[in-house]
């Protein structure tokens, strides 16, 4: 029999289910199904089951792409963590007025198109860019430094693009930290550094892990940064998928790479869950 009360109770959840179902669930199923299909010579999808797409992932050329992307994402996570932690720590310890100003400044770049901001880096780092011009002008260097179009440039651009996510995740974590715990640690004889490693760091571990996830996942899929700053020299997953859909006209293969990327993300999320669930201890204890 219909339970009217139960239907009424769950009614507010319906839009969320419809939303996720339509915009996440169905496309996801579509991608997974697509990854097992073949294509004809013209690039049209043919309804014929095959594992060929997944086999091709293990081609050394494509494995290298997965490796590149994983390396880029992991390094981006680490760089944003090491730059973001002090920023978040000092911001969270500011007086309320300055703190909202600082947070505003951190979020401000979001208001500008990300493409424009990446072009900004080209103006800065290019062979005839601002930095090279200044260095040449003051005779610090004779030849322009080549800072563009390599893995490092892509890394800088990606880290720059995603660092606000890291800072916000860390900020929330540091902000929640009970200051009396730090005082208790000093009071019991610990120095500032020992307090940081024994108390602050373990207690902000959820923020560190969360920020890492927030940075790691999008950096796997970004492709325009490596196109603009990397000069297409290093191929990453995002570029590969993009190229297979547009130039390669091989949607099933692109779908298989996408599923591979999702699996990579799920592995990282699994590790994240393990870290945040486990008992956290200080490094010195």
């Amino acid at each position: 029999m219909f339970n009217l009360k139960k239907i009424k109770q769950n009614a507010p959840a319906v839009p969320i289910f419809v939303w996720t179902g339509l915009l996440v669930g169905i496309p996801l199923i579509y991608v997974v199904v697509l990854s097992f299909l073949s294509r004809d010579n013209l690039g049209n999808v043919v309804f014929e089951f095959t594992l060929e797409n997944y086999k091709r992932i293990f081609d050394p050329v494509y494995l290298k792409v997965f490796y590149n992307s994983f390396l880029l994402a992991a390094l981006t996570g680490l760089i944003t963590l090491f730059i973001g932690y002090p920023v978040a720590y000092f911001t969270a310890n500011l007086e309320p007025k300055r703190r909202s100003l600082a947070m505003g400044l951190i979020i401000l770049p979001f208001w500008i198109s990300s493409l424009l901001r990446i072009y900004g880096w080209i103006i800065l780092l290019g062979n005839k860019g601002l930095i090279n011009n200044l260095l040449l002008k003051f005779n610090i260097i004779k030849e322009p430094l080549i800072m563009m179009y390599n893995f490092g440039t892509t890394l800088v651009g990606t880290a720059y693009m995603l660092i606000p996510f890291m800072i916000i995740a860390l900020f929330n974590s540091v902000d929640k930290l009970d200051r009396s715990l730090l005082e208790a640690s000093y009071d019991l004889g610990a120095s500032k550094w020992k307090t940081f490693f024994n108390i602050t760091l373990p207690l902000t571990m959820p923020g560190i892990a969360g920020g890492f996830i927030l940075v790691f996942i999008p950096s796997l899929g970004l492709f325009f940064i490596s196109d603009l700053l990397g000069g297409g020299k290093n191929v990453f997953l995002g570029n590969l998928i993009n190229a297979q859909v547009t130039k390669g006209r091989n949607k099933p293969l692109a779908a298989a790479f996408s599923v591979g990327m999702i699996v990579l993300v799920l592995i990282v999320l699994y590790i994240y869950n393990r870290i945040t669930k486990d008992k956290k201890e200080g490094l010195f204890l």
Binding site: L181, A184, D187, P202, K280, E281
Partner: peptide, 21 residues
């Protein structure tokens, strides 16, 4: 002297026990 150099200890109002230990 900094608090960690004074031979004085405090019991805080909210006890401030380290939650992860």
């Amino acid at each position: 002297l900094a608090p960690n150099k004074r031979n004085i200890n405090t019991v805080f109002q909210n006890y401030a026990l380290f939650p992860h230990l």
